[in-house]
Computed example of a mutant assay.
Amino acid sequence: MLIFKSKGGNLVRKILLALTAVVALAGCTQTEKGAVIGGATGAVIGGAVSGDVEGALVGGAVGAVAGALIGRANEPGQCYYRDRSGRRYIARCPAGY
């Protein structure tokens, strides 16, 4: 088997890992995608800012929650409504939306 080497490690392994991540996310809802992307981004930023694992964990947790909330707000076919009491709820959008 021909293996290509890059400066940082095995290039084929990195490509397969990236493809696996893309395929795994393809079957997720917008909420799940948002949580994964937010969590990963938050962990990277939290670790870079604090310089330790605790910062990465806190950043990942905050990013995952924020990403899930953002992803949930972008669900296709879902609309936000308010009832007579002013409470907000989500339901299917009318036809044509």
Rank of each mutant, 00 (worst) to 15 (best):
I45W: 05
R82L: 15
R82Q: 15
N74H: 12
R92S: 15
A43H: 08
A68M: 11
L69Y: 03
A48G: 01
G38R: 00
A95E: 13
G86H: 04
G55W: 03
Y80F: 04
A48R: 00
Y81Q: 13
G77E: 14
R84Y: 08
A68I: 03
A43E: 11
A68T: 05
A43Y: 12
V36I: 15
A73V: 05
G59V: 11
G46C: 02
A61K: 03
C93I: 09
A95T: 07
V36N: 08
R92I: 12
S85Y: 13
A35R: 00
G38A: 01
G42C: 12
G86T: 03
Y89A: 11
A91E: 11
C79H: 10
V53A: 12
Y89E: 11
T41G: 04
R88C: 07
A35I: 03
G46F: 02
R72E: 06
A56P: 09
Q78L: 15
Y81V: 09
I70W: 05
A48P: 00
I90P: 01
A95D: 11
G42N: 08
I90R: 11
V58Q: 06
G47H: 11
I45P: 04
A68L: 05
V49R: 09
R87C: 11
V44F: 06
A61I: 14
I70D: 09
N74W: 14
I45M: 10
P76E: 15
D52V: 07
G77Y: 11
G60E: 06
Y81C: 09
A61C: 09
D52Q: 07
V58D: 07
G59D: 07
E54S: 13
R72N: 06
G39C: 05
G51P: 00
